[in-house]
């Protein structure tokens, strides 16, 4: 287990380095940062002074080395717009995105697993087919469209749920979260559903495929020969087997849910990292964009690590092999 973790950590370092190169040079290509720092009409001397202050007059490779050096100390620059450190700026927006992604994840499991298991159980019947057809919609409908449709139905027509902002938030363990207030939770439902739809379809398909496969196994037949009820067979014997791949995939998907909640956050004016990114791109706030991308990579790496560990805990076969290694 320890060996395995060390190996994964080493791999992660290489991924981080590669990402630094890509992000730095990629962003370096777009736009001239000085334009937003200072009016292009300003006297040349002033422009040069600004360039020197931010180090933009240096050759690219020197700038890069400085960037890496600072990054290693957790400093990814200051936002040109907010004047604040880019990292802490993003961190302050992060809880909103995290709680939204978590709720979306919970929704996608709560919707996808029962539907998928049922569809697998009734694979040849109309119920199974109907669920599968439904999941195709979940896959193909664009996020913003689903979001607007939900707003139209539940916020505008029925007026059941709010459609913009975070609602009331409370401080929990130093994080400002909406999920713990009734008002905040109501504000989360529509965006979380929007975010969950695609994943729910994915989970449905995974659960269905897994269920179909599990139902053909001897251990299910043996469970039936023991006289167990179909409910017990599905809820215990089948579910425990299919949860391993589902959790693995979902864990990996959580990363993309956090990183790319951009569209959903924009539609619902949800003040999370995604919205911050869009705003920063519009204002060419380079340090924030770079910091966002770097932190996204870190989030992915951390989540993958957690998934690997959880996976070993879930599957008794892997668990033993791992501890022997």
């Amino acid at each position: 287990m320890l060996v395995f973790l060390l190996r994964r950590l080493t791999q992660s370092v290489f991924v981080l380095i590669a990402m630094m190169v890509v992000v730095f040079f990629g962003v370096f290509m777009i736009g001239n940062p000085v334009d937003i720092l200072i009016s292009p009409d300003a006297p040349p001397a002033e422009i040069e002074a600004t360039m020197a202050r931010f180090g933009f007059d240096q050759p690219v490779h020197i700038q890069f080395l400085k960037f890496v050096g600072n990054a290693l100390q957790g400093d990814l620059g200051r936002s040109f717009v907010h004047g604040e450190s880019a990292v802490s700026l993003i961190l302050s927006y992060m809880p909103a995105t995290l709680e939204l992604a978590m709720l979306g994840l919970i929704f996608s499991v709560a919707i996808g697993v029962p539907l998928g298991v049922y569809a697998g159980y009734k694979a040849d019947r109309w119920q199974g087919r109907a669920i599968m057809t439904g999941s195709i919609f979940g896959f193909s409908l664009p996020n913003f469209w689903v979001g607007m449709l939900l707003i139209l139905i539940f916020a505008v027509e029925l007026q059941w749920l709010p459609s913009t902002g975070r609602g009331e938030a409370v401080e929990v363990l130093g994080l400002r979260l909406s999920i713990f207030t009734a008002d905040g939770f109501q504000h989360m439902i529509l965006p979380a559903l929007t975010l969950a739809l695609y994943k729910a379809s994915l989970v449905t398909r995974l659960a269905r495929a897994g269920t179909q496969e599990a139902l053909m196994q001897d251990y299910v037949k043996f469970a039936r020969a023991k006289g167990l009820s179909e409910t017990r067979i599905l809820m215990v014997h089948v579910l425990k087997n299919i949860m391993i791949p589902i959790i693995t995939v979902l864990g990996l998907e959580l990363g993309s849910m956090i990183a790319f909640a951009v569209v959903t956050e924009t539609v619902f004016a949800w003040p999370g990292m995604g919205k911050l990114l869009i705003d920063s791109i519009l204002t060419l706030d380079r340090p924030v964009i770079v910091a966002y991308l770097m932190m996204t990579v870190v989030i992915f790496i951390v989540i993958n690590l957690i998934v690997d560990v959880v996976y070993t805990l879930l599957d008794p076969r892997v668990r033993v092999k791992g501890s022997a290694a």
Binding site: D218, Y219, N241, D315, R317
Partner: peptide, 8 residues
């Protein structure tokens, strides 16, 4: 090898 559920 196949009759017992591997994860229970």
């Amino acid at each position: 090898m196949m009759t017992l559920n591997p994860v229970l």
